[in-house]
Design a protein around this nucleic acid. Structure first.
Length: 102
DNA sequence: CTTTTGACTGAGT
DNA sequence: AACTCAGCCAAAA
């Protein structure tokens, strides 16, 4: 299984109403240092619609922003729909919502 | 083939 | 707390 597939698999396992960081996903995929590759993997997003990319945020809890599926508003809306509450600056509270794996 | 770039992170200043 | 630096590695040019 390639790294990309592990990434997709890990992202798929993120519980509803939770978010995970790239580093966390990278760790689950077996290589904590490949956080950037996780970004690439999701950017490629071959499993678009199947992998909940909207639940993956950077270490600050900021959404990937810029582009995404239909648009960043869509991404935010999806998270809010799952119960995630955003801060004024548009970031999520990782203390509350970071996926507690292990 | 080499170089640049980027949905990142952690340590250092 | 904010900013910088360096390491990481795959895809695109």
């Amino acid at each position: 299984m390639g790294f990309f597939e592990k990434v997709y698999n890990a992202v798929r396992k993120i519980p509803k109403g939770r978010v995970a960081t790239y580093g966390q996903i990278a760790r689950l995929a077996g290589d904590p240092r490949k956080a950037r590759i996780v970004g690439w993997a999701l950017h490629s997003n071959p499993y678009k619609g199947e992998v909940p990319c909207h639940r993956v945020v950077n270490r600050n809890g900021n959404l990937s922003g810029a582009f995404a599926f239909e648009g960043m508003d869509e991404q935010k809306r999806l998270l809010e729909m799952e119960g995630i509450v955003f801060e004024k600056d548009g970031s999520v509270d990782l203390k509350k919502y970071k996926w507690d794996d292990k």
